[in-house]
């Protein structure tokens, strides 16, 4: 994998990013309704002033051009709903919360998924296989918005072991991150099991045994790298899924993160905030996919990106 490929990959992000900006911008603007519609006590004059202040009366293309100019400087503009606050500030407040939630969920998913899948692959068709794989079917079939409330019901309301909402104490993190990570733990455990079993049936594992290697060395040196490739290539979609799943999780557990903020702003028609958060999401997912691809190429010497 050459440096040229990496640069090309990054270069392709620019037009795609522009496409996304354009799409979201005009989608929002052509939609009926405006940011100040909901406010009752707004006289036509104030409304005009507000529109004037935020340049909403300019021709759309001019507004778009100005937005792009600001965007290049990294300025996502002022919020329409939160007076005197910029979108950058609002994101700076809520993004760390969402990142913490997402990263914790991903750590759960990898930890549970790799261990369960690894055990299952070493002892197929035993209890070590059946129990985690049955759980993983649950994880795949139960969506986040079912698992979350169920966990709250059992551990929060019935057993009263864990808090049901909020984001202050460390124990507040447990249920939300488990909720968000569960489905991915399930997928990762299946991919791990499948990947490792597939590798174990390969001729080169027989070669390794014929060389007199110990089972531990066969697992660590000869199987893990190839066996975990399916997990690595799943990390891209998993990260995207965790980011969108966070919308639900933050709603269920009342967490002041980016997801809840995104939905609220969309409902409030807070144009700049919606734009800003959506662009942030796209960028996050692009960057994650980019790194996943690099990781894949590093792990599999046969992969060559032109």
């Amino acid at each position: 994998m050459g440096l040229g490929y990496l640069l090309k990959r990054l270069a392709i992000m620019v037009p795609v990013f522009f496409l996304v900006v354009t799409m979201v911008f005009f989608m929002i603007r052509f939609a009926p309704g405006g940011p100040f519609d909901g406010e009752k006590a707004v006289s036509p004059e104030i409304l005009r002033n507000l529109n004037e202040k935020y340049h909403l009366n300019d021709p759309l293309l001019v507004q778009f051009g100005n937005y792009l100019k600001d965007l290049v400087r990294g300025d996502l503009g002022p919020s329409f709903k939160y007076a005197n606050r910029t979108v950058n500030e609002l994101i700076a407040d809520s993004l760390p919360v969402s990142l913490e939630l997402g990263v914790t969920a991903l750590i759960w998913a990898l930890l549970i998924g790799l261990v369960a899948g690894g055990l299952a692959s070493m002892k197929p068709n035993t209890v070590w296989d059946y129990v985690p794989m049955s759980f993983s079917i649950l994880g795949i079939c139960l969506p986040t918005f079912v698992i979350g409330p169920l966990l709250v019901l059992v551990f929060g309301i019935w057993l009263e072991w864990l808090p049901v909402a909020g984001w202050d104490a460390p124990e507040d993190r447990i249920l939300p991150s488990l909720t968000l990570g569960f489905a991915y733990a399930a997928f990762i455990s299946r991919l791990t099991r499948g990947g490792l079993m597939e590798i174990r049936s390969q001729d080169f594992i027989r070669t390794a045994r014929a060389k007199g290697l110990s089972e531990a060395r066969i697992l660590i040196v000869h199987s893990l790298r190839g066996g975990l490739l399916p997990v690595v290539s799943y990390l891209g979609p998993a990260l995207a899924g965790i980011i969108s799943g966070a919308l639900v999780t933050e709603t269920i557990f009342n967490i002041p993160g980016l997801g809840r903020f995104f939905i609220q702003s969309a409902v409030n028609r807070d144009y700049t905030v919606v734009m800003g958060t959506a662009l942030l999401y796209f960028t996050l997912i692009f960057v994650c996919n980019f790194f996943v691809d690099i990781m894949y190429a590093l792990l599999d010497p046969r992969v060559k990106y032109e």
Binding site: F262, F282, F286
Partner: peptide
């Protein structure tokens, strides 16, 4: 690479 669900959310909200 595009997370379509976000576009759908925006679409549903605005239209």
């Amino acid at each position: 690479a595009l997370p379509f669900i976000f576009l759908v959310i925006i679409l549903m909200v605005y239209f």
